[in-house]
Design a protein around this nucleic acid. Structure first.
Lengths: 219, 219
DNA sequence: ACCTGAACACCGTTCAAGT
DNA sequence: ACCTGAACACCGTTCAAGT
């Protein structure tokens, strides 16, 4: 049972001109690249090994299983997300900044959102702490902090799973149903971009959280 | 290319004591049952065929591919969700009712949430219309209606993807990090149930939406 | 009309073996 | 220490064939 720590390779091997050897970093980067260019569903352990020019099982010396690889991939991405300065504005301004920074990274690697959605706690601890500090500074206490964090998490990463399949959008023939409330609104849908959905949702969540804080203050 | 319409079988076959034949309904029910008892990841086309006592390809006569089967499964579940009477209360009371009714069904078949999260438009049209009508009656207009619908959709179905893996929750040794904002809040997490996360999120979203409506009214 | 069987091109992972 | 190769138990789907 190998693959315990984070730095596995290069500890004692390339001290004397040995052939180049894989590193965990190379493996994670190769995985990220496959996800970036072809999506998460294209990433298989066998595909990854082809990318690395090794046999199918090579990566298993560095990683216990596929789930652990996905953990590492998600953590690596989140590690690059900057945290706003704690003094840099009101709690909601700072929350908007982190959330926008995470979203920017997700736009580069949309497949990662699916991994992260399922892992609320095993994410980058630095980032999670940053968000918790923002929420606590806003005035959330006790269980509320987790409830709020979970809600933001769900929306932020869940959003990327909601895809509009082209064949779902009905065409002209459906417009005849004037009784259909959805049909009457459909023309608006074409003008909406992912960005619109994102900022509308974030703004609404923050407005709702502010209402909670206000209600607490008047009690 | 068979499997065009919804009612495929039993139109002309069991009129004269022929051997019993599969129906789309049986197939969808068998799929629902597998999802209910073992989760979505346990449902494969081959597993389904075993459940039906047929060969691996039997279901393909009724369904074009696995995606279409999942569409049918999701629609069947949503078709059972009751819509509240349009006169039965304020918009937010009615919205809470639909959303709670959907959540009740999801608790029976948690795997379905994953299917639905990815299909915002190809859901039960009756239900989607019901929600749209509630939103329009609340005062949302134009693109706002879609933005609001999408937000509710994302939270409602995304929530079921957020699972707390037992091995993620750190134990006593992490409590030493008193600097760690997350660690200080961890004791609260154990007392929280799925229900708490659900109602906290729904309440916050509704509060945020109400704030939007209020802002519109004062303009 | 309804279903079977074989086949293809994949998966993740175990385990023994090679260098 | 680091990796290969074969094998196992799976997938979804195509396509020809059976009744």
């Amino acid at each position: 049972m190998p693959a315990g720590g984070t730095a596995r390779a290069s500890s004692a091997n390339n001290k004397r001109g040995k052939p180049p050897v894989l590193t965990e970093d190379q493996i994670v980067d190769a995985a990220l690249e496959v996800i970036r260019t072809e999506g998460l569903e294209a990433l298989s352990m066998r595909r990854l090994s082809r990318e690395l020019g090794r046999s199918a099982m090579a990566a298993y010396w560095y990683v216990e299983d596929k789930q652990q690889l996905l953990n590492l991939v998600a953590k690596k991405m989140l590690a690059e997300v900057p945290l706003p300065d704690p003094e840099s504005g009101t709690w909601d301004e700072r929350l908007r900044k982190v959330v926008a920074a995470i979203d920017a990274k997700l736009r580069e690697h949309p497949g990662i959102a699916e991994i992260l959605l399922q892992r609320m706690l095993s994410t980058d601890r630095r980032l999670m702490n940053g968000v918790f500090e923002i929420l606590i500074s806003a005035g959330f206490e006790g269980p509320e902090t987790f409830l709020t964090y979970a809600m933001i998490h769900t929306y932020l990463f869940g959003r990327y799973q909601v895809v509009l399949h082209a064949d779902e959008v009905p065409d002209e023939e459906q417009v005849d149903n004037l009784e259909d409330a959805v049909a009457t609104q459909l023309p608006h849908l074409e003008r909406l971009r992912g960005r619109d959905f994102f900022s509308y949702g974030v703004d609404t969540i923050i407005a709702g959280l502010q209402a909670r804080l206000d209600a607490k203050a008047n009690a």
